[in-house]
Amino acid sequence: MRITADTTVCIGAGMCALTAPEVFDQADDGLVTVLLPDPAEELHEAAAEAVRLCPSGALGVR
C-alpha cells in the first residue's frame, strides 16, 4: 500500500486524522500530513477507509 496526499487539494476537514490517526495527521495549518506512507498491514483497512472518506479527493492509495 502506498498513500499519497495532495495538499493543494486538501481542505483540512480532518476526516483522515479522525479515521486513521496512526497514518494521517493535520499539520499546524490544518492540511494533511501522511505519517506512514506505507502503513503496516493491520492499518490498511483504516487507511483505505480514510481515503474513501476524504471529502476533497486529496488522498490516493496505490
Binding site: 483540512g12 480532518g14 479522525l18 493535520q26 495549518d29 490544518g30
Partner: peptide, 15 residues
C-alpha cells in the same frame, strides 16, 4: 473558496 477556507482550517483541526 480555498483562499478563504484556508484562513480558518488551522482553527478547527482535531488537535
Amino acid at each position: 473558496h480555498s483562499f478563504y477556507r484556508r484562513m480558518l482550517t488551522q482553527e478547527f483541526t482535531l488537535k
